[in-house]
Design a protein around this nucleic acid. Structure first.
Length: 114
DNA sequence: AGTATGACTCATC
DNA sequence: AGATGAGCCATAC
């Protein structure tokens, strides 16, 4: 058996982890990758989000490990994500999220058994 | 096949 | 707290 798992499966796992993040909270790419079972591939997570055109995907809740917006400050995505996060009650300061991550909650939500 | 780039992360200054 | 350099992985040329 070479690889029985299709590519979409891995991507779907990332999307699931992203969707598991509750509103008003944020998670880092590394955290998502880790919960998805592919630690060390934060970059890949970002690529998946960019590739995915799922309107129900709260990609705006995903930020860098420093809590900073991943997009360039002069990009539309930056403003959009910032605005969306604020709309969910997240405090943002100069393009940076002023709030702890939801990694712990994410764990419980993703496993869904808690 | 090798180089360059990116919604990244970590260690160090 | 912000800036710099090196590491890592996948895609594009």
């Amino acid at each position: 058996m070479i690889d029985d798992t299709p590519l979409s499966s891995r991507e779907q796992r990332i999307l699931a982890a992203v969707r598991a993040v509750p509103a008003g909270q944020v998670a880092s790419y590394a955290a998502i990758a880790r919960r998805a079972g592919v630690p060390g591939r934060a970059r890949w997570v970002a690529r998946v989000l960019a590739r995915s055109e799922d309107p129900g995907l709260p990609w705006h809740r995903i930020v860098r490990a420093d809590g900073r917006i991943a997009f360039p400050a002069d990009s539309e995505g930056f403003l959009l994500q910032c605005q969306r996060l604020r709309a969910e009650g997240v405090t943002i300061r100069r393009g940076r999220v002023c709030q702890p991550f939801a990694e712990d909650d994410l764990d419980a939500l993703l496993w869904g058994d808690a």
